[in-house]
Nucleic acid binder design. Structure first.
Lengths: 226, 226
DNA sequence: CGCATTTTTGATTCTTATCAAGACGAGTGG
DNA sequence: CCACTCGTCTTGATAAGAATCAAAAATGCG
């Protein structure tokens, strides 16, 4: 386990921490704990280099030569990634929080792998319409709903408001949504002022008015946001 | 075969011609010819509703409630689509030219279906970085290279210039690239003026300087385009 | 507490969208 | 054969949304 190995330091956004996971060489160990900011490299061309997220949050991303980054998906507990599901030669994965990974046996979990692949494609298609055809506010609203669903905490709250930890920074959100971090920040504050969401700490978000957020995300006939 | 059935006429961009392909009911016929503008509906929840493009061009697209459209992929000969590969409840397919489709047997072509699914995901990821992080010129350049590869004609040309039929209109290109048709038109003319491409008819494109186009598509250090 | 990072906020610029005519081409019918 | 029409494409003027640039505020960490 080579945590701290320097790799791809050419880009400012790529974290220097880097974990090389080689399921073949790992022997008996099936579980790994990964620290935030770690870039996960799955070695081995074979489909066996595939893991399941037991707990935590991982993002899949791709980069252009000049450093522009696009986050392709944000994965929570239960999601799979690796060679059986994604082309790891083209895209990388990074842990956004302390994350526990479990190496899986692709042959005995054939069905799970296929479902993961389909889910990945389906989410990718949804992401395409978001990137290509939604406005900044619609993008951020869509992202919040998605993350709320994937990372919702057990809420002891009065209403059915969902609260979740935003493992992504504003810059990560921007790279996911095809925006800049300033625009993301402005959208979030606009939502806050409008009472759609609430947050005291910038990474603990509560969705206060899910219906309104859902309308916004779907591109409702525009109503002014303050 | 119900060619001409009215369906989804709510949207102005959706063609009124519509073919409902139901592989189960079709009996022995395996080949279908589809006319340009036809929206292809693959019936049946089962994975069997899957076809291979023998010849022609099909686009996969998705729409927002208010009519905004995002083309997810443009498929040429050899590509598969349908329930085994894409979620047909969420996205539709439309023929962009006379297209011959062949119903395939998903069980006997297990490997081919899996490869098609992987290709679809890979292209979707490339598309995401295009939509989210590339400029208009980079988007159009990338699209031209992709289409040139998929739809290249046998060229008896002197140089290694590739010529291809652009089955997509400017509006289609715009919906694929997350732009407007005017911006697409302006980019194409800018490329023409710069000598990267050539066209007399707006739908027959010749890539004159593929290397330069490739640099542009990859986001080279910006050099002014006239 | 002080430093580094992230986030917020403001002012300004720039890219691309929008709006608005024309131009071109293909097909139609007189 | 030639106006006429329709759809697509081109081109220009203007507007809007988001990016960029810049700096202050908040947060977290050692």
């Amino acid at each position: 386990m080579l945590n701290g190995t320097l790799l791809g330091a050419s880009s400012p956004v790529l974290p220097i921490d880097c974990l090389i996971l080689n399921p073949q060489a790992s022997g008996g160990t099936r579980l790994r704990l990964v620290t935030p900011g770690t870039t996960i490299i799955l070695q081995g061309i074979r489909r066996e280099a595939t893991v399941r997220i037991v707990e935590g949050c991982v993002c899949l991303f791709q980069q252009l030569a000049d450093g522009r980054r696009q986050i392709l998906d944000v994965l929570g507990a239960g999601r799979l990634f690796g060679n059986a599901v994604t082309d790891t030669t083209r895209c990388s994965a990074a842990a956004l929080t302390f994350t526990q990974l479990e190496t899986i046996d692709v042959d005995s979990e054939r069905k799970g792998v296929e479902d993961a692949l389909r889910l990945m494609l389906h989410r990718s298609h949804e992401h395409a319409i978001l990137l290509g055809r939604k406005t900044a506010a619609e993008k951020v609203a869509t992202a919040l709903l998605d993350l709320g669903q994937q990372f919702a905490r057990r809420s002891s709250d009065t209403r059915n408001a969902t609260t979740f930890t935003l493992y992504l920074t504003r810059a990560d959100l921007a790279d996911w949504l095809g925006l800049t971090l300033e625009t993301v920040s402005r959208c979030l504050h606009s939502f806050k002022r409008s009472g759609l969401i609430t947050f005291k700490h910038p990474e603990i978000i509560t969705i206060a008015d899910e219906d309104a957020l859902r309308l916004l995300a779907a591109g409702q006939p525009k109503r002014a946001l303050s």
